[in-house]
Design a protein around this nucleic acid. Structure first.
Lengths: 151, 151
DNA sequence: AGCTTCAGTTCCTTAAGGGAACCCCGAGTG
DNA sequence: CACTCGGGGTTCCCTTAAGGAACTGAAGCT
């Protein structure tokens, strides 16, 4: 299969982000690392992903600065941990989770729940304007060309 | 290429969501439809995607209830519009955009800006707890098994 | 009747994922 | 010192999906 490099299409932060974590399995690898599956064997066993593809994905995520590969033994053993850049990607996963919980979970209800440290309650994320704090969703904004626009 | 059906791996809203929009091009198609490119020819020209793949992706997104295919002429002409389910997916794109703006845009700055209707300011999304309204990010939550969990 | 446009469909080539087998390295054991 | 074990990959072959260009069909226009 050939695959287009999305970020060459246009200046677009969505396309650029997809070049970092848009490949199959990458978001699930991030989820697992966040959940504490940090080693190659753990990830492979939990996801059932091909070892070849897992190697490729981990290398790519490390190159992109989303994960860090660090030794945890004097033997050649490594674990993968989220960098700050990677941790901030988890925000996106929390929004995906919320959408999946609402539209795909069905009667069984959400597979996982989040308990918010600040208030101690089971909750989920909500999108708000970083400026005024009011709700901010797809229909609440105008899209304008920014400084990095090319067309 | 074979591709694993992610949602069969485990009860996981992320995996389920990826089965809806995780295929290559799907998020960019959604972005374009949101931006007003609603017809086959417009999408194909803007993205440079193969017509075959565009057909497959549009069909899948319609089947999943994310897009609606509606005629706009007495001739066999169709446009694709976001359903409510699809519009809520754009939340995820806004979070992706924010991450890409921060980590990948570089000196040129963000390619697009959002102006928030409520306050009229250029802004971006921020994740907050739906319950208490405080900031809610990856490190601010505990993850617990929910009613839909299978293990 | 012929031309044009939109919205796909068909067909071939190329490359990526799946999966199983294999390999290398250092530690622990007898 | 040889032997085994387990983590972390690498290699190989097969299948299937993406790229890309050419083709089709159904209106409406001239």
């Amino acid at each position: 299969m050939q695959r287009t490099n999305f970020s060459e299409l246009a200046a677009c932060s969505i396309a650029r982000t997809l070049d970092v974590i848009g490949e199959p399995w990458s978001p699930l690898i991030l989820r697992d690392v966040w959940a504490g599956f940090s080693r190659f064997e753990q990830l492979q066993a939990d996801l059932g992903i091909s070892r070849k593809v897992l190697t490729e994905r981990l290398n790519h995520l490390v190159e992109e600065g989303v994960l860090e590969r660090r030794p945890y033994d004097r033997r050649p053993r490594y674990e993968y941990v989220l960098t700050e850049k990677g941790t901030e990607l988890v925000d996106m996963l929390m929004v995906m989770t919320r959408w999946g919980d609402k539209w795909l979970a069905g009667k069984a209800g959400p597979p996982v729940l989040y308990r918010h440290h600040a208030c101690g309650e089971i909750s989920s994320v909500d999108l708000r304007c970083a400026h005024c704090g009011e709700s901010m969703h797809a229909n609440d904004v105008d899209v304008l060309a920014g400084p990095g626009a090319t067309r």
